Simulated scan of single mutants.
Amino acid sequence: MDTQFITFSETPLQPGMMATQDGTLLDAYSNTVVTVAKKVSQSVVQIKVSGRSSTQESAKNNPATRRPPGRGESDGGTGSGFIISTDGYIITNNHVVAGASNIQVSLPDSNEYEATLIGRDPATDIAVIKIYADGLKAIRFADSKQVQVGQIAIAVGNPYGFQYSLTAGVVSALGRTLRSESGRLIDDVIQTDAALNPGNSGGPLVNSNGDVIGVNTAVILPAQGICFAVSSNLAALVAGKLIMHGRVRRGYLGIAGQLINLTERIKQYNQLTTKSGVMVVSVEPDGVAGNSELHEGDIIVEFNGQPVATVDDLHRLLTDDSIGRLTQLTVLRQNRKKGIMVTPGEMK
């Protein structure tokens, strides 16, 4: 019986060929990063803030905005941002500019400009500032829904005041959530191992085309290579509202609530899909919200037909579209389902 061998190449593997192939791959990766660096370099800025009052200690002490010793005023800090329009709009993090009376922007050409705060949103840690300068180059947004785990992620910013530094890695995970300073959850957060340090906050996380897939916002300090960015789709949505209205409008029910677990018996009796709800601890009467039908002790389990299992679910459903609109809540009152009507107001 003849034995036949299958070969995959007519060219025999020569000594050193594997090293050559690895070198080619390395060159391709390096070329990608170098190309991206050149493309985005003129769009990333350094932000210096000063004039925080003593009442803004939480913002000043945020490790992402703290200057290293000897690098700035005791009431100041630095961060990063990126230009999104040729007329001077810049996205950064809320915690970079919160409470600052003076905001200075340094461009890659070393020119400095005083910036105007357009609006900030603590719930997503996004802020927009504006400078008046000529010849600005804007960076583009990518669709963060198309981002995949494992793809190249490149972070650009100004860590510890060192202007324009670049780190590269991959997208480590998608769909993470972060708790913002306002207490709300930030959804669709991108996790990356591209190294971030204090001062990177507000800078762009870009893909291999040099388009923004996220806004760098947080690190886990004791960890290595666990960094987070607000997704580009959320950042673009919030930035648009800040530019148009100076704020992001959100609904408000005028209640204090807490999570409560439901017994299996109550769940089955009321045909509920969730194992918990939001118990109303207190109701603010005659406030900005029409909530007179809500009673202390009610357990909210649905908002306009959508299940509510946690306070975060309620926050997510209280969008600007809900403001001033008569909406049905489903509550458990004395352990029985009851539909009531409320009119969310606008959160101030």
Rank of each mutant, 00 (worst) to 15 (best):
residue 202 G to R: 09
residue 214 G to R: 01
residue 231 S to D: 15
residue 51 G to S: 10
residue 142 A to E: 11
residue 222 P to S: 12
residue 216 N to V: 04
residue 132 Y to N: 15
residue 127 A to H: 04
residue 286 D to Q: 13
residue 145 K to V: 00
residue 214 G to T: 05
residue 209 N to A: 14
residue 112 E to L: 06
residue 70 G to R: 07
residue 228 F to W: 03
residue 230 V to F: 00
residue 270 N to D: 06
residue 334 Q to C: 01
residue 155 A to F: 06
residue 134 D to I: 00
residue 70 G to T: 03
residue 105 V to D: 08
residue 348 K to T: 12
residue 150 G to N: 06
residue 133 A to K: 07
residue 95 H to G: 10
residue 248 V to H: 06
residue 66 R to T: 11
residue 141 F to L: 13
residue 344 P to Q: 07
residue 20 T to V: 11
residue 38 K to Q: 14
residue 248 V to E: 06
residue 328 Q to A: 14
residue 172 S to E: 09
residue 144 S to A: 09
residue 275 K to A: 08
residue 83 I to T: 06
residue 283 V to P: 01
residue 326 L to I: 08
residue 29 Y to W: 08
residue 243 I to N: 04
residue 240 G to A: 08
residue 163 Q to N: 14
residue 248 V to G: 09
residue 203 G to R: 03
residue 336 R to D: 07
residue 31 N to H: 10
residue 65 T to P: 01
residue 54 S to R: 11
residue 142 A to M: 07
residue 268 Q to G: 00
residue 197 N to G: 11
residue 173 A to P: 07
residue 135 G to C: 02
residue 176 R to E: 11
residue 37 A to P: 00
residue 130 K to G: 10
residue 33 V to F: 12
residue 327 T to R: 02
residue 250 R to M: 04
residue 69 P to R: 13
residue 97 V to E: 03
residue 165 S to G: 12
residue 237 L to M: 13
residue 122 P to Y: 03
residue 342 V to Q: 01
residue 31 N to E: 11
residue 146 Q to N: 13
residue 93 N to H: 05
residue 220 I to K: 12
residue 150 G to W: 07
residue 31 N to L: 10
residue 131 I to N: 04
residue 105 V to R: 08
residue 89 Y to N: 14
residue 187 D to S: 13
residue 264 E to I: 01
residue 70 G to C: 09
residue 269 Y to R: 11
residue 204 P to M: 07
residue 293 E to A: 15
residue 286 D to M: 11
residue 51 G to W: 04
residue 281 V to I: 11
residue 117 L to Q: 08
residue 313 D to Y: 06
residue 61 N to A: 12
residue 108 P to E: 02
residue 32 T to P: 04
residue 137 K to M: 09
residue 289 A to C: 09
residue 24 T to M: 15
residue 62 N to S: 13
residue 280 V to E: 01
residue 122 P to G: 12
residue 106 S to F: 03
residue 36 V to F: 06
residue 320 D to F: 08
residue 40 V to A: 09
residue 14 Q to W: 00
residue 120 R to E: 15
residue 94 N to G: 05
residue 341 M to D: 12
residue 348 K to A: 13
residue 173 A to S: 15
residue 290 G to E: 12
residue 12 P to D: 13
residue 66 R to H: 04
residue 314 L to N: 04
residue 284 E to F: 05
residue 58 S to H: 05
residue 124 T to K: 02
residue 208 S to P: 01
residue 256 A to Y: 07
residue 95 H to L: 10
residue 64 A to G: 15
residue 71 R to S: 15
residue 270 N to W: 01
residue 50 S to N: 14
residue 151 Q to M: 13
residue 241 K to A: 11
residue 202 G to Q: 05
residue 77 G to L: 06
residue 90 I to G: 05
